[in-house]
Amino acid sequence: MDTIIEQFFNVEIMARTFPIILRGLGMTVLVCIAVVPLGLLGGLAVGFSMQTRFRPVRLLIAAFVDLFRAIPPLVLLIFVHSGLPFAGIQLTAFGSVCLTFFLNTSAYYGEVYRAGIESVGLGQWQAARSTGLTAGQTGLYVILPQAVRNVLPDLISNTIEVVKLTSLASVVALPEMLYSSDMARAVTYNASPMTLAALIYLVLLWPLVRLVSRLEHRLGH
């Protein structure tokens, strides 16, 4: 028991490595600020394009969504980061992470938006259009607010997944929180820095996880 505390919950080591991990947290936040809006916007585009009457476009979008839901994000990230340079496309670690997440999360957010848009009755479209709103205005002011409200739990839970996924960036040596804590672990020969990182993830995400659970249980009834 003492060794477990010594190896995983060593407060002294945690305190010493805290500044490094905090800097990692800064990078994690930065990545999230970049990739969550990217995914939300990409997903919005995907969700609305799925509504087109033009079948080839629909099939193309569906293929895009399924492709990027099928490929594990880590595989995509490695392919972008160490595969594309062979074709002369050399992105920084941050750039690779952004591109990978854009492709992956647009697909997931897109499905969520699509479900939301389809949950709004056709009558809403027709009524809005008949008042003289253009198609774009109808989508933005009438459909989207209702769609977002209907799928809010899914949007939040997807965002939690995106934040968790940013830990993959450590694999391409982007110094976010997991990478920093892993470095600290290697230097101190002690797992406590990683426990600290895990605790920070827990503190940041747990309220959101609870919120989603409550929203979902409430909607279930």
């Binding site: 477990i4 190896q7 450590s170 797992a191 990683m194 895990a198 747990w206």
Partner: peptide, 21 residues
């Protein structure tokens, strides 16, 4: 706890942490 923690954090924590104990 296990819905909140990123899987990669857990994988590394278990893989590199447990040998120390």
């Amino acid at each position: 706890v296990f819905r909140t923690l990123p899987p990669l954090v857990l994988v590394l924590l278990v893989y590199f942490g447990l040998p120390n104990v």
